[in-house]
Amino acid sequence: MRAVAHNKVALAFGALFVAIVVLCLLAPVYARDIAHTGPNDNHITETVNVGGKRVDVVSPIGVPIGPTWKERFLLGADSNGRDVAVRLLYGGRNSLEIAAIATLITMVLAIVLGTLAGYMRGITDGVLSRVFDLVWAYPAVLLGVALGVALAVGGLDLGVFTLHSGSLLLPAFVIGIVFFPYVAKPLRGHALSLREREFVDAARIMGYPPPLGSVRIMVSEILPNLTSSIVVFVPLIVANAILLEAGLSYLGAGVQAPNPSWGTMIADGIRLIPGAIHLVLVPGIMLMLTVLSVNVFADGVRDALDPKAIVRGRL
């Protein structure tokens, strides 16, 4: 962590990401105390005071007002007369929440299955690796869209486990499934090499008999040595999950209306380009800043944890 602390650029972008997260978490406060409107409250036929003049929030031909730079409609309104700033923060909450849960699902699946495949080898490895290949072989976005669209209307009902169609967990689940092989395969490779190391042999000799012994070795010997890889993967998956969520929501397969997300906000605004370009620019810039900040911070973490990256940096 000391190495990360020395990387000022990574730290600055890490701080930016934290700031975005905090802002998004404060969405209800902003909505209640500053904008005085909720994320789904419409004000289509209302007017707002701009520069001493009453201006339609949405014009008679449907063009919404741009940024007022005031408490109400700070970043403008959308076609339904909803406050873009409020929706931006709530949308960010949704996007970040989905990204966090999706990353959790990806990492748990990848760590368990990747370690199991790498350590156990044989049939277990054969079966699990084919599963990884199967999911990997399908383009991530297409798989996400296919799953998202299929589940968007009916939800997911596995008997003991049910997700309603409007639930934020649904896109999180879809993204988590889509990305896990991208982490599981490298972890499997890493586990495969670790199981041949002396300290693992020593653990076996010291009396960890299979099959329970194998679990103990994986948990106490293999997993700790995978930590640096896992730490590097987490921000990368977060960034990709945010992007995929935006893509899925843009295509109608992610967050369901009227809930905002940066992807749905871009989708809603695209038909109003160029007259109300703020509808696309505002969530687009926020999305870009968030992903950029995570990626640069992730690079810093990787540079700190990966000796080869440090060498590359010195070159």
């Binding site: 789904n40 409250d41 419409n42 339904n80 109608g252 369901q256 209306a257």
Partner: peptide, 21 residues
């Protein structure tokens, strides 16, 4: 957009509306 508006009105008058697009 019609449905977005309609759902918000239903919520405003005391129902609990969600959308299926």
């Amino acid at each position: 957009e019609f449905v977005d508006y309609y759902a918000s009105v239903l919520n405003e008058i005391g129902l609990k509306a969600t959308e299926k697009i």
